[in-house]
Write a protein that binds this DNA or RNA. Sequence first.
RNA 1: GCCGCUGUAGCUCAGUUGGUCAGAGCACCCGGCUGUUAACCGGGCGGUCAUCGGUUCGAAUCCGAUCAGCGGCGCCA
Length: 467
Amino acid sequence: MPPKERVPKSFCRAPFLTIQMTYPEFPDSDNFTTIGDILNGVVDGKSISVRGWIYRTRSSGKLSFIVLRDSTGIIQSVVSSDSVSESSFTASKKALVESSVLVTGTPIKDERAPGGWELKASNFEVLHYADTFPITKDQSDEHLLNNRHLWLRSRDMVSCLKIRSTIFQAFRNYWISLGYAEVQSPSFTTSACEGGSTLFNVSYDDHNEKSGQKFYAHLSQSWQLYAEATMFGLEKIFTVAPSFRAEKSRTRRHLTEFWHAEVEAAWTHNHQMMELEEGMINTILNEVLSNNLSELEHLGRDISLLQNVKGPFEKMKYSDVIDELNSLGFDLSWGDDFGYKEEKALTSSRTQPLFITHFPKEKGFYHRPDPEDPKSLVCHDLLAPEGYGEIIGGGERIWSPDELDTRIREEGMEPASYGWYMDLRKYGSVPHSGFGLGLDRLTSWICGAEHIKNVIPFPRTMRRTNP
RNA sequence: GCCGCUGUAGCUCAGUUGGUCAGAGCACCCGGCUGUUAACCGGGCGGUCAUCGGUUCGAAUCCGAUCAGCGGCGCCA
């Protein structure tokens, strides 16, 4: 075996050093203008410099048209052999799409340019000549997924990811403003939180042989059991974390690794939590509408549909939903679970989110049976409109130790196998509620995405873990 | 787990009943063009037809298996 390559000590410790690094080919300077500022008319008529990548390139004899992009937009620059050095002009003709460039010039309004603005180049410098970019105008879903590491540069992906960022931030800000604390729970777990869901198994070298177990741990499907423990100290908590489901689901709404926003609060009833969720959805939508209009427009989203979402959201009991579905031609009886077909029928004609409450007991052992109607639960789902379906599942948790014991046995499980979770009901148990929100599904709805894969940088599905 | 579909050049695809079927456009390279809008004109490069096996005088084409991927259902967020 060849000797292991040694990493220079100074490299390892780079963050702690204050050595001034200089890159002669790339000036240490903030003296660059964003394309967004140019398009907003901030620097009309002045000579400025732009740094970015080549988005499109066309040339004719003595003239190159180089469309530049940065994270804020795109602008066409015109490189004329009359107004730049020979090396600049050659570079502009030679550089392929996605080459990184530094361009100096004067922005002017010009109707002939896409976007209405144009940069008259006085200097055109290529920092790195790109190889032939694998993504051209002929694109298939599969090719774009195989090249997702490069497709992330596309305006579609950038728009979705900007909106996604707003959504994540708005979620956090909303709960923090209500006095909730952000808490982290482990991704390695040994307790299933929800029966039925399939768990990923994680191995750990020879741990398995030594311990006699088949695996080291599962990957978490939800923080809920941990949240119920943490809640007793902090009372109001939330998290944003990945959850993992090994279901063999192949739909436009499923990922094996998805971003789960979850909330848990002591002294809180189901109906109170639903009100908070409504406020959360409205807050997130308002933030997106005030920060990401251009991204929504680029994606072709019907913005009026989002603007028209206002509370109070419609609330229906499960039994009434069954009646509505049967009036639409379904044949369901009380106790039947309904799937996406039913969700789609309910939500495709609606323009507002829809709460469904009082599901049958089978939905989850940890949800509290309704004292007035013990065969149903004090719980809720929230369905997004336009056919996007379920984005939230939540409810009031059982807080009485005896009731929890009974429910677990009813589900054919042994309370003892829940170990420390049963402990939580022994020491000052209190009423509490919580929910889980699929952030990718929420983003998918807000973006109007065709597929949930379109709104996460590196989607993980049952058949894809690359790139 | 179930149902359906796809695999031919770097990309998007055509290829009829098995017989000049190794093709086009784009990309890339060379040349031309001073207003292009993922331009245009001329030329060039480029494929073990997913893999393996079978049927046949002959297979990209028919059959089987395998691999990879896509869409949907059920389940869930």
